[in-house]
Design a protein around this nucleic acid. Structure first.
Lengths: 137, 137
DNA sequence: GTAGCTGCAAACTCTTTGCAACTCT
DNA sequence: AGAGTTGCAAAGAGTTTGCAGCTAC
């Protein structure tokens, strides 16, 4: 039983074939798939799965903090399995998502929230960029 | 003629009554209104305005870089007039949006993008927090 | 056995668009 | 005059949901 399956069982979810399929797709994903992506990959394993189940499952997993739902200003959601904390740089030309971490940033964000009188609960940072070419701007 | 109207005319847009109304709503707004919000406020001035026009106008203004469209993980868009560059701290208890600026952050973000081989085109940082209970800053 | 899960299709929300009438320049 | 703009309604895209049958526990 995979780690993700375990976490779901512990949360009281029934481990159905469809859920196993979706969890496999997610743990195999090295990108940030949309619902449609997850659906397509799941169908490759179990062609009878429905997109409603994919939506329902991803929502539950988000609720359980097993995945994070992102809205990268694209008009639809993309999901990723929660692992280490990081942020995203979105390549404006290809849509590719690059992950990065930065300790300085973490410290700075906490400091900013504190200065505003807030306790930082969550945060999102997205950088949108274009690949540097030989020519500089 | 207001500053916003001027900028639109310069961009080659015809200055219709509906556009004037929407621009007034936007320049009067001190919050980050949704399309529905803008529509409601515009209707209070000109009850015949249609929501399609509000959508079309806001899209144009976004294109012209006069406003910025935000998607604060709420499932719909919110707009704000572009003025000084800043970021948002969203109060998780009240939904209130607090704006802030931080020079250190700006430098750090550019640096991160450079290091990843990218030219920073745009970026979004959102902090989600809860008010510190004890004393105020 | 039964609470929970699924597929299906319909419904919903937000946003965009085709079109004919109208209006700013 | 004529291109651009508008309101309307219909269509799209993404997501949610009611329901009857099915399944894990």
């Amino acid at each position: 039983m995979s780690n993700l399956e375990e976490r779901c069982s512990e949360a009281g979810l029934k481990m159905t074939g469809q859920r196993r399929t979706i969890l496999k797709v997610l743990s195999d994903a090295s990108d940030h798939p949309s619902v449609e992506d997850v659906y397509d990959r799941a169908k490759a394993i179990d062609s009878s799965i429905s997109i409603a189940t994919v939506y329902r499952t991803l929502s539950m997993l988000d609720e359980l903090d097993i995945v994070t739902r992102h809205e990268f200003q694209e008009g639809y959601s993309r999901y990723e399995v929660n692992e280490d904390h990081h942020h995203h740089l979105i390549d404006l030309e290809t849509g590719k998502v690059i992950e990065f971490q930065n300790e300085e940033l973490e410290i700075l964000k906490k400091k900013i929230a504190q200065e505003l009188g807030y306790d930082l609960v969550d945060h999102r940072l997205e950088l949108y960029g274009k690949k540097l070419s030989k020519k500089k701007k």
